[in-house]
Nucleic acid binder design. Sequence first.
DNA 1: CTAAATGCAAATGCTTTGCAATTCC
DNA 2: GGAATTGCAAAGCATTTGCATTTAG
Lengths: 148, 148
Amino acid sequence: MITEEDKFRDYLKKKGLKFTPERELILKEVFSLHKHFDVEALFGILRKKDRTISRATIYRTLPLLIESGLIREALRCRDRVYYELIFGHPHHDHLLCIGCGKVIEFRNERLEKLQKEVCKKYGFKPIEHRLGIKGYCKKCQKKMRESS
Amino acid sequence: MITEEDKFRDYLKKKGLKFTPERELILKEVFSLHKHFDVEALFGILRKKDRTISRATIYRTLPLLIESGLIREALRCRDRVYYELIFGHPHHDHLLCIGCGKVIEFRNERLEKLQKEVCKKYGFKPIEHRLGIKGYCKKCQKKMRESS
DNA sequence: CTAAATGCAAATGCTTTGCAATTCC
DNA sequence: GGAATTGCAAAGCATTTGCATTTAG
């Protein structure tokens, strides 16, 4: 069974790059988080485990993780980029609550299929897609009803 | 018939804000462009018509155009934000070519309907959504085949 | 009149980069 | 051994903001 580390090592080797302790730490941490993360959050967590790791290294490593197909940019919110795992995590789309910031992940096969059909119609070869629906979650709708 | 200017004036009045020459110029220019635009492009064009208009005013005006429901953030590419018209332009989604940067707009009713169903399932009240599919357009696929 | 808007320049905040020292292979 | 990597601090860059001046209503 191929692990994320195998995949990352393969990618690095192929590119003539090194598997350093810093890269290992970042990889491990990213894959032990089980939700979206941004650079600041990741930096905070990593600093607790390694007092010397720098933001620069994180900024330099994330593109490698993306290029090796392990993570991807999931969404942006107020100028912050949030990443999510791809490896071992099936593709999904997002519902974003404007009220409380909650993120609901969902997967809908028909939606996926329909997108492929649209691409076909335009002779377009899809590589990846992102669907984000902004609105109000159940709780926030309830809050709004109660306060009005 | 209500124009974009009417809509903008109404919004400003409601908020106790002013309809200035700068805001008028920006509004007019944005609505005479018929494609996505970013701040730099807009600034370049506006400067030709008004030597003194500043980036700051553009940055301060765009949120007003968004809040009044005239435009919206369409997509982001390499840290640049691109806007598009809403007023007078029916909702659509995007195919983005990784090769040449081409943007294809499309609208698919079934896709829209399906999204509403997903929201319903989660008790989520959708306000707006964005679907972007990245991949390769016809021409770029052809180029890739020929060069390999 | 006067609150709001403007242009400018300085500040902000995220991200990138140059560099000297270090380390993986 | 030597190219790649690191941390640091400085630089970049899009965007925001403080302020003195101007202006719409």
